[in-house]
Simulated scan of single mutants.
Amino acid sequence: METIAIILIISFVGLAALHLYWALGGKFGMSAALPEVDGTPVFTPGAAATIAVAFVLTGFALIALVLGFGAGYAAALTPYAVLLGFAVGGVLVLRAVGELKYVGFFKRVKGSKFAMYDSWLFSPFCLLAGGAFLLLAAGRI
């Protein structure tokens, strides 16, 4: 279980760092990160929203930390982490399925750079990470 937690922690800390980079004006990877229609992004998040996402992703990493290594100093947090682990796992699996238009395995808008990355990287990652959170949370019951 520790290995799964470490992989989740590294993944979500890395994603949080990437979002902070974008919030500070970085451009690398941005063209593949937003759904688009006819070359125009469906939405353009501001710096505050991007920083908020970075904090949420850091929270996911902390939940994985408590679920994977919840002994000792974090033992009191474990019951909350279990509930949050199930919630995060469910949200990530739902993200993988998608909202049926722009995002997820069942999206209808295809042909963009985002759609390709979403099909081959983002949605599979969300499905695997969601399953990993569910596994970690179930292992703490």
Rank of each mutant, 00 (worst) to 15 (best):
Gly139Tyr: 06
Ala32Pro: 07
Ala17Asn: 02
Gly29Ser: 09
Ala137Asn: 11
Ala81Leu: 01
Pro124Glu: 05
Ser119Met: 04
Ala52Arg: 10
Ala71Gly: 15
Ala32Trp: 10
Ala87Tyr: 13
Lys27Met: 04
Gly25Gln: 06
Ala87Glu: 05
Lys113Gly: 06
Gly46His: 04
Ala16Thr: 12
Ala81Cys: 03
Leu24Trp: 09
Trp22Val: 09
Val91Ser: 13
Ala64Cys: 00
Tyr73Gly: 08
Tyr102Ser: 03
Leu18Lys: 10
Ile10Val: 14
Thr58Gly: 10
Ala115Gln: 06
Phe105Tyr: 12
Phe122Ser: 08
Val93Phe: 09
Phe125Val: 03
Ala132Met: 09
Gly29Glu: 02
Gly90Asp: 05
Asp118Met: 02
Leu134Asn: 11
Ile141Thr: 14
Gly85Ala: 02
Ala81His: 04
Gly14Arg: 07
Leu65Ala: 14
Tyr80Gln: 12
Ala16Tyr: 13
Lys113Tyr: 06
Leu84Asn: 01
Gly130Asp: 05
Arg108Asp: 09
Val53Glu: 00
Lys101Phe: 09
Ala17Ser: 03
Phe122Asp: 03
Leu100Pro: 15
Val97Ile: 14
Leu134His: 13
Phe69Gly: 04
Val97Trp: 10
Ser31Cys: 03
Ile7Trp: 13
Lys107Gln: 05
Ser31Gly: 10
Phe122Gly: 08
Ala64Glu: 00
Tyr21Ile: 06
Ala49Met: 07
Gly29Leu: 04
Leu121Ala: 12
Gly46Arg: 04
Leu34Tyr: 08
Leu100Tyr: 15
Phe55Pro: 06
Gly104Phe: 05
Gly26Asn: 11
Gly59Gln: 06
Asp118Gln: 01
Phe133Leu: 00
Trp22Glu: 00
Tyr80Ile: 02
Lys110Ile: 01
Phe86Lys: 12
Pro35Met: 06
Gly111Tyr: 01
Leu77Ser: 05
Leu84Cys: 03
Phe133Met: 01
Ile10Asn: 05
Met116His: 15
Val37Asn: 09
Ala132Arg: 01
Thr40Glu: 15
Leu77Met: 08
Ser119Arg: 11
Leu62Trp: 07
Ser112Met: 10
Leu134Glu: 11
Asp38Glu: 12
Val82Cys: 03
Met116Val: 12
Ala5Phe: 09
Thr58Glu: 02
Lys27Gln: 10
Leu94Trp: 13
Val93Ile: 12
Leu65Pro: 00
Val88Asp: 01
Tyr117Asn: 11
Gly98Leu: 00
Leu77Trp: 14
Arg140Ala: 07
Val103Ile: 15
Ala17Met: 09
Gly68Pro: 01
Val93Met: 10
Ala48Gln: 15
Leu57Ala: 14
Ala137Asp: 02
Leu128Trp: 14
Leu15Arg: 08
Ala23Pro: 03
Phe60Ser: 09
Ala17Val: 14
Leu62Glu: 03
Phe106Cys: 10
Pro124Ile: 02
